[in-house]
Amino acid sequence: MSKKSKAVSSQHELYFAAFVTILGLVALVMAFGFSPRARILPIPVTLLLTIMGLVQFWNSWKQMTFEKSNKDTGISANATVPFYRNPLLMTIICILIYPLLLKFLGFIVSSLLAMVYLMRLRGVKSWFTTSVFSIITPILVYYLFNVIGGTNFPKGPWGF
């Protein structure tokens, strides 16, 4: 139904459908362990999720065999780039590490590091621009949320 102009192959569709099916199945099995009134809704919902996952799996399987004969996937183009240059991978790693840093370094410092890294990754060349924005943004955000919002963001060992 949709145009597949993006470099997304049906292979990824297949993986995701498999993920959905397994998620649904695991959740379904767990739902049987709930007390009777607490599983009235979860059982049909997870069952539907499993079935829809299987349907989607089947659809993408058909689509993939069709594409294989056409021999075109846009994925191999990325293979030559080393992993630390792959923006998708590195962005995901960065935002996954962020919550870990938060506990030790506090909001301001970990946000500063994340900003510097993400700005360089997205191609900001000037170190001046990078440092100005990555210093001002976390401080301003911290200030806004803590003064107006009255919240209490995590602090590092140095007190901010």
Binding site: V124, S134, F145
Partner: peptide
Amino acid sequence: LGIVAPIVTILCFAGALS
């Protein structure tokens, strides 16, 4: 976007923390 995307990231994290 090189400037906007990182700022939005920090805003999202701050929103979650709040």
